[in-house]
Design a protein around this nucleic acid. Sequence first.
DNA 1: GCCAACGTTGGC
DNA 2: GCCAACGTTGGC
Length: 139
Amino acid sequence: MAYWLFKSEPSTWGWDDQVAKGDAGEEWDGVRNYQARNFMREMKLGDLGFFYHSQKDREVVGIVEVCAEAHPDSTTDDDRWECVDIKAVRPFKASVSLDAIKADPRLAEMVLVKNSRLSVQPVTEAEWKIVCSLGNTTP
DNA sequence: GCCAACGTTGGC
DNA sequence: GCCAACGTTGGC
């Protein structure tokens, strides 16, 4: 079981959009970055991830689950790009802001802090537990 | 809205 | 294969 973080600008695709897709989930398409794609290729069914709102909100708002492993991205004919499907699992009881993450020394090594531009990134088990507890939500 | 950081592209 | 130019992202 691995843990990840998916970043999206809420005006483009937000938590509410994800929830509306229900258990069927939705393609995490549109990623055009090799690092992000490579992480998606590593994902397995049942892996969990944080759903993060970038730009204006800048906070982790919920937990998602990988419900289809990497497959070609349907939004392009370019076969370099693949994506997984994810479905919403549950919202955080309290969203965890980027400020709160930066303020916690235990989270100083998070990719979110170190490489803020990467849109799909790995999260360690330790980081997963800490952020969940900050969100007042069971991991 | 600005700008820094980063990734990608294309000319050489 | 290098590197300059360019485009995009996302925090501030």
